[in-house]
Amino acid sequence: MGLDIRIPMGALFSLLGALLAGYGLIGGQALARRSLGINIDLWWGLLLLAFGASMLLLAWRARRRH
C-alpha cells in the first residue's frame, strides 16, 4: 500500500499527546478548574503519547520483520 498507516497515526498522536501534556504541566491546577479538578490535559496527553508511541513501535516491528 506504500504507506503504513501506523506511522502517520503514531506520529500524530505522539505529537498531540506531547503538546497537551506539556500544556497541562505548565498550566497546572489553574487549568483544571473547568474539568472539575482533574488536570485532564496532562493525563490525557500522556495517554495519547503512550498510544502514539505504541503505534510507532508496532510499525517499526512490522518493518523489521520484512
Partner: peptide, 9 residues
C-alpha cells in the same frame, strides 16, 4: 468541561 488544550482536541 474542557480546558484549553482538550478543547482543541
Amino acid at each position: 468541561y474542557f480546558p484549553n488544550g482538550m478543547l482543541g482536541l
